[in-house]
Amino acid sequence: MADEFLLQVGGVSKAFGGVQAITNLSFRLFKGEILGVIGPNGSGKTTLVNLITGFVRPDSGKVFYKARNITGLQPHKIANLGLTRTFQIARPYDSLPAFKNLIVPLNSPRVRRTRGGKLGDIEAVAIDMLEEVGFERDARVPYKTAGSLPLGYLKRLELARCIALKPDIIICDEIFSGLSMSEITSMIPFLEKLHLEGITMMMIEHRLRELFRLTDRVMVMNFGEKIAEGMPQEVIENKEVRKAYLGTETS
């Protein structure tokens, strides 16, 4: 594990009305790693993603990305820095064909910059990109309107939207949830490939077995706090974690 970290979250807290969703949470995301984040429903995982990516402003605490303070920056600015996220509930553009969904990120300043302002045949790029995440071109899936696609494709579309931005970090919010076993097994190699290409990832998951195939470090959250962090094996043994989370699921 390299010492260099890309993302540092320092003591963030967030309350919604009376609900304390995140309490004084700190962690680091190292360059090139896949960090798993687990925790029961409502423990504040999605809120954490929202805080990092600018969709929600923290009440206190700071977020640093590549040694730059990005706290309170607008979501689109953060995305343009290469820090991307998927949504737990997929957010496609229902009325557009799937490949046109990618036209949006492909027009972002970040992509324009890397492509030197010229976009070329952007639709071909979009379709290639979709094929890469598993939209069968022969079956004309990329041309179907997003609103008509089953969940499996929508989750991959979420991922494709991040990849289109040529990101440094992808934060996946429960990208496996709602998928069948075979869909998950087909997605894992793809995630591994992204990882090999050097993309740093943070994966929020409930499916522990699949998650542990990908990650070597896991953070556990409960009631908005970090209760454990470490190697998967260590974490599972941890008493507090068993009580809070695994206790309800495995034993």
Binding site: T53, N80, T84, R91, P92, N107, S108, P109, R161
Partner: peptide, 16 residues
């Protein structure tokens, strides 16, 4: 159209 369908996703795509 993206903004109309889902503005949050457009933000996440790096578009203002």
């Amino acid at each position: 159209q993206g903004i109309k369908d889902n503005d949050q996703a457009v933000k996440a795509s790096g578009i203002n």
